[in-house]
Amino acid sequence: MTTVYRVLFMVLLIALWQIASMNVGRNLIPSPLATFHTGTAMLADGRLVGALGASLSIYLTGLFLAIVIAIPLGIVMGGIRLLGKTLEVYVYALSATPRVAFIPLIIALLGLGFEAKITVVLLGAIMPILINTYAGVLAVDTQLIEMARSVGLSRTGIFVRIVLPGSVPFIIVGLRLGATIGLINTVVAELYTAVTGLGGLLAIYGNSFRMEEYFVVVLTLAMIGVVVTETLRLLESRLSGWKTAG
């Protein structure tokens, strides 16, 4: 049923788009059909695929690094209270600072290439994952811990069997936020450093008023967002099926 409503809403959006394309002057908004034709042409000549590949490699590398750093760090910060209390202020401070502020420094240190770009993505994605993992470990049910102690489980056993699984729902929320911010930062990185990938195409087509191509790129980015968040939602429902069961 939801699918039907979703499709109907998409029809509505496309209709609005069509109306807008006919009423906004100077060809600033291309029609849906023209955009579609341009899209298939860009796919066919390889422009879109090349840019998509470049963007995805930056995005996924940065996101992967963020995950492998943030989850263990969040777990250690939550598991060792003194360490967590020491570091948390700095983590919150860093997460409140706009990451774009670091771009000049990153460029100065790492240049304009791949390393600089994945660093921008990493910096954006790491904070929500870290903060949520940390919160998840701290939010563990102390009654369950006492139960596990009473059963005779060791400290390590309690950590592995109770604390970690209990923080999975938090970690997934962090992953979803991190994945979204990581995608935003991918485009930001491509606009501010060497102009490549989908972000690069946005700049080129936007600055030269090639609005059909520009729209194709925007829609491609939106589709990446949908694919990533839906994948994570699937993961979430598999890992926390017990919550919705019954």
Partner: peptide, 20 residues
């Protein structure tokens, strides 16, 4: 006393693991 298999504890609020 040491917590472990020699002693069973039943809590008022059950304390079941929700994801198991």
């Amino acid at each position: 006393p040491r917590p472990g298999p020699e002693t069973g504890f039943v809590f008022q609020s059950f304390r079941l693991i929700p994801w198991a």
